[in-house]
Each structure stands twice: as structure tokens, then as C-alpha cells.
């Protein structure tokens, strides 16, 4: 029996997915997945390789078409909305691999993060905000992004996402390719950003220790289906995960 510590009907849900099924062509990856993210909440999705975590994020932001089910964002159905419009409406996604534009400068990467913003003064203001959070990006704003270390690239990817002033950030394995010390710092920044900006975050991860330390709730995805939902506190107490994976 699936445990459900929170009820989307009783919280202010920013994102609600109900019974979504999705995949690529005839290959079904997600089966009857339901989840929700409340405003200001940090939610984790854990699962092994191939569980459907990345597909879940891409489906939520409408990069992967729905076969069935319903997605609501800010109280409106977005099941037929394009990914471009989803970004404009306040959802951002940071891919797990190559989440930056390697050939472009840091400042140009950040500028692209604000693709929907036409006012150049506003773009510069948002860029300054990002430089306050990640000073290294400000120091190296004219550097080519591809020359950055893994950790710096990850910071840049978060900066790109923040440029859109998202209400909900979808992060795909932000710990991938960076050292444990940088993972800890990065996750703390994510948690602080969510609190300070009243921004929601949905993170998919394989790094159980890192994710359970910052999330309010966590889902476990196995073979394209949600098999567990519990609070972050409960997840931190859990000693054995592999039976769930």
C-alpha cells in the first residue's frame, strides 16, 4: 500500500500530476504516476537508473508527450501546453548532463536562461542576483563555460535556471559529476534558495544521503511507478533503501 503523508487537496499545490502515463513512441516509461508539489516545498524523487526519473521531469515540463493522465500547474491544466510555454509560465528544468552551453560565455549562458525576458535591464538585474548567489560566476562572467570544472558548471546550470525566476525548478541529478563536498554545498544552496524565494523544487536523484537531507518529502520511483511517498524526516530515518529500488 502506497503511503501518502500529504494530501494535495489540503495543501496549496503548485504542481499536481494525476495518473500520468508517458513514454517514447510505443515504449511506456511512466505508468499511472501521481504526485504533487506544494508552493515553497522541496520534493525529491529517488530511483535507480532506468526507473523513469528523467522521463518524469521531462513529462512534467511537457518535453515528453502524455499518453494519459492530467497535469495541473498553478491551478490550470497544462496537459496540452508546450515546453516553451511551461518555461514562460514559471517552470524550469536543469538536465542531468551538459546543463550549460559549453561554447558560450557565462554571461551569455545566463542571458539565454532569461529567454522570455525582453527587457535588457531586467536581464542584467537578474544576472547580478545570480552573481550574488554564485560569486565565481560573476568573477568569470566573460569566460567560456565549457572550461569550467564540474562543480562550477553545476552552479552555472542553477544560475541559468534562476534567470527565469521560476516558481518550480525541476533538477535532474544535480549531484552528477561533482565531488561530495560540492554536492553538500550545492544542495544547501538549493534549500536556501527555495526558502528565501518561496520557490518549489522537484529534484530527482540517486544520491539518497544528499537528497534526504534537504527535502520536505520524497517519492520513490520504481519501473516507472511511484512505490513510496514519505516525509523528509521519515526518509532520513530510513536505513535500508535498496529493497525499495
Amino acid at each position: 500500500m502506497l503511503q501518502t503523508p500529504t494530501d494535495p487537496q489540503t495543501t496549496t499545490s503548485l504542481l499536481t500530476a494525476t495518473g500520468i502515463t508517458a513514454g517514447y513512441g510505443k515504449q511506456r516509461v511512466l505508468s499511472d504516476v501521481s504526485l504533487h508539489v506544494a508552493a515553497g516545498e522541496v520534493v525529491g524523487v529517488l530511483g535507480h537508473n532506468g526507473a523513469g526519473k528523467t522521463t518524469l521531469l521531462k513529462t512534467l515540463i511537457r518535453m515528453v508527450p502524455l499518453t494519459s493522465g492530467e497535469i495541473e500547474f498553478q491551478g490550470r491544466s497544462v496537459s496540452r501546453t508546450s515546453s516553451v510555454k511551461m518555461v514562460r509560465q514559471g517552470m524550469s528544468i536543469t538536465p542531468a548532463t551538459t546543463p550549460i552551453f559549453r561554447d558560450l560565455k557565462v554571461s551569455q549562458n545566463l542571458e539565454l536562461g532569461a529567454s522570455g525576458v525582453t527587457d535588457r535591464t531586467e536581464v542584467r538585474r537578474r544576472m547580478d542576483e545570480v552573481f550574488e548567489i554564485f560569486p565565481i560566476l560573476g568573477d568569470r562572467r566573460e569566460s567560456i563555460a565549457g572550461r569550467f570544472s564540474g562543480g562550477q558548471q553545476r552552479q552555472l546550470s542553477l544560475g541559468i535556471a534562476l534567470m527565469a525566476h521560476p516558481k518550480l525548478m525541476l533538477l535532474d541529478e544535480p549531484s552528477l559529476g561533482i565531488s561530495p563536498a560540492v554536492v553538500e554545498t550545492t544542495f544547501k544552496i538549493i534549500k536556501d534558495l527555495a526558502r528565501e524565494r518561496d520557490m518549489s523544487v522537484l529534484i530527482v536523484e540517486q544520491n539518497v544521503k544528499a537528497i534526504t537531507s534537504i527535502v520536505d518529502r520524497v517519492y520513490v520511483l520504481r519501473n516507472g511507478a511511484i512505490v513510496l511517498e514519505e516525509t523528509g524526516a521519515e526518509a532520513q530515518q530510513r536505513e535500508i533503501w535498496w529493497d525499495l529500488f
Binding site: I61, M63, S83, V84, M86, V87, R88, S92, I93, T94, P95, T98, P99, I100, F101, R102, D103, L104, L112, G113, S115, G116, I160, A164
Partner: peptide, 16 residues
């Protein structure tokens, strides 16, 4: 350039 070098990321930042 973004579409040429990283179309997935380009879509992620809302480039049409």
C-alpha cells in the same frame, strides 16, 4: 548557437 550546440538545454530554457 544554443540550438546548434545543445538542443535539449535550449528547449529547457524555453527557446522556441
Amino acid at each position: 548557437t544554443a540550438m546548434r550546440t545543445n538542443p535539449t538545454m535550449a528547449e529547457a530554457v524555453g527557446i522556441d
